[in-house]
């Protein structure tokens, strides 16, 4: 079995295991929704070397797009989701197109500026977005014959979409396109010198990332029945980035781990201590200092420590291209 199928199998196992170990269908759905957002973020950060603070924009706009469609039109749920993905892709194309004109810190600052811009846009146009209160009472219509009213049924729906999108992202990552992204991440100058229009590749990566993030945002709005202002806030971008980094940027499955860890640990900590974010900050420092390959790297080391696991963890330099030494190069 190759690495991609192994990772897909692990993702499927997680989707199956969550209902067995968790009491709340809402929380379980949240894990998979953020897993999609983090995997999309990973496509930019881990594969292209772009540290984008704009992921919250696409997530938030996806929430609004789905909410507005379902509140004001009688379009079916599937179409509402498609519209959110398109919204995410279109806006991400625009944000990407403008931001990649600058590199390094300036790129990051531009995405941050866009993040603030869209937040205040959502805040200002209260009539459309509900401003501070958010867009309330978003219905969750049935999809075909399946009613999604129950939180676990909805989880099943999310899980199917999650696995489809995860497989699609895996396909993207292993395509000639994804492999060129890795080259861009490694050495942008050489990528251009051998003939690749690097900007087109970065913009396409943004569009794909935006589409998946927008869809995740829509699923989140349907989950809680609200498209809150916090979905488009800078803090959302930050959370998605933290999940991605905690999980590890070497492969897409790592983002699933990161999102699961973040969502579940936040839930546990917030119930025992209101200042739980402090602990998460501490954890991020530990990851940055001691485990730059994130939770996935930790898992890999554990598997390698088992006598049985040695063979299966052999790395090919194409599929596990990001060495800890090169972390942060493209950022």
């Amino acid at each position: 079995m190759n690495r991609a199928s192994l990772h897909f199998l692990l993702a499927a196992l997680i989707a199956i295991a969550l209902p067995l170990f968790m009491r709340s269908g809402t929380l379980a759905s949240e894990v998979l929704i953020f897993a999609m957002a983090a995997a999309a973020c990973n496509l930019l950060l881990g594969y292209t070397g772009l540290l984008s603070f704009g992921q919250g924009i696409f997530f938030g706009l996806g929430s609004y797009a789905a909410g507005l469609t379902l509140l004001h039109t009688s379009l079916p749920l599937a179409l509402a989701l498609v519209l959110s993905a398109i919204t995410g892709a279109v806006v991400a194309t625009g944000v990407g197109w403008l931001s990649i004109r600058r590199q390094g810190v300036y790129f990051v600052m531009l995405t941050l500026a866009f993040s603030q811009f869209f937040y205040f846009l959502a805040y200002t146009f209260k009539d459309i977005t509900g401003g501070d209160n958010g867009l309330l009472n978003i219905p969750r219509p049935a999809i075909g014959p399946f009613s999604l009213g129950d939180s676990w049924t909805y989880y099943g729906f999310v899980a199917v979409l999650f696995l489809l999108l995860f497989a699609a992202l895996q396909r993207v990552a292993s395509s000639t396109f994804g492999r060129t992204l890795l080259a861009v991440r490694d050495n942008e100058e050489r990528a251009r010198a051998i003939g690749f229009p690097v900007r087109d590749f970065k913009i396409t990566a943004f569009a794909i990332s935006g589409a998946v993030t927008g869809l995740a945002g829509a699923l989140h709005a349907l989950l809680i029945g609200v498209a809150p202002l916090s979905n488009i806030e800078y803090h959302m971008s930050e959370s998605i980035l933290i999940m991605t980094i905690i999980g590890g940027t070497g492969n897409l499955f790592a983002s699933v781990l990161g999102a699961g860890f973040y969502v579940i640990v936040s839930d546990l900590l917030s119930s025992i201590w209101p200042r739980w974010l402090l602990l998460l900050g501490g954890l991020l420092i530990v990851v940055a200092l001691f485990m730059q390959k994130g939770l996935w790297g930790l898992l890999e080391r554990l598997v390698e420590a088992l006598p049985m696991g040695r063979k299966s963890s052999t790395k090919s330099s194409i599929e596990a291209p990001i060495q800890p030494e090169s972390q942060g190069r493209g950022i």
Binding site: F177, T180, L182, A183, N187, A191, F196, S317, I322
Partner: peptide
């Protein structure tokens, strides 16, 4: 491309002749 292997380095360089194919 320091982190990519030799074959992949050269494959990318060869692909650069028809870069738009790689955009799919």
């Amino acid at each position: 491309f320091q982190n990519l292997n030799v074959r992949e380095n050269l494959r990318l360089a060869a692909q650069g002749r028809t870069p738009l194919q790689a955009l799919a």
